[in-house]
Design a protein around this nucleic acid. Structure first.
Lengths: 108, 108
DNA sequence: TGACATATATAGATTGCCGATATATACTTT
DNA sequence: AAAGTATATATCGGCAATCTATATATGTCA
């Protein structure tokens, strides 16, 4: 077994990928969507998101393209096949991790 | 709302406190118990645990006492009233966090 | 006697996330 | 028209949690 330790604090990338599974989005849109979906529990900071997006792109999990809307250039991100595969493995790990915590807390 | 960000990677201290809620334990025993209860998902390292125990003690969540068993001196830890209160708040935060992740992942 | 499990401890490195800051445009208010 | 606010992306420096490696010491078993 042995879960990836970084998942414990690495749930942010998993959730970003999950958002992009539904549709292409630009950074600012992800911040707002994540805040809404989590009912204000996650208030993702720009200083966290943008470096994360660049790293996910470097790893081949995302591709980016620019799109002009209302004279403003927005950078849209799209999840790749590799990104979807990575997301699936992260979701599995999350389930494992979450169940283990509940077991220890005797809340299962 | 707004959950404590450190909980995301700070679930270890919560689980340690939960173990001590059942009975006093020494460090090595916690490592083994946590591994068993989580079904090998958490393999807590000694280099993580001992500094964490010292910090929890400094914060008044734990008290320590030495006990000799088989000529070996073991350091037992006991959860304080303040530690129990802290544990309760951490468990509440965990529930909030966990629910929010599931909402984003559409697994709720 | 040597190997291994038990038991605690610390230093150094890595990583994820955040605060602060910078830049630029669109929209709203005065 | 000017000022302020929201939108939008980006980077740097730093903090905190965790791990690796290392050190030390005793008990048990072959």
């Amino acid at each position: 077994m042995a879960i990836d330790k970084s998942l414990i604090s690495g749930s942010t990338s998993m959730m970003i990928l999950r958002l992009l599974e539904e549709k292409d989005m630009y950074g600012y849109e992800m911040i707002e969507t994540l805040e809404a979906k989590s009912k204000n529990v996650f208030t993702l900071k720009a200083g966290t998101l943008y470096p994360l997006l660049h790293s996910l792109e470097d790893n081949g999990y995302l591709t980016a393209y620019e799109n002009e809307v209302n004279g403003k250039v927005r950078k849209y991100y799209s999840i790749t096949k590799s990104g979807k595969k990575y997301l699936k493995s992260k979701k599995d790990e999350w389930n494992t991790y979450q169940t283990a915590v509940l077991n220890v807390l005797c809340m299962s």
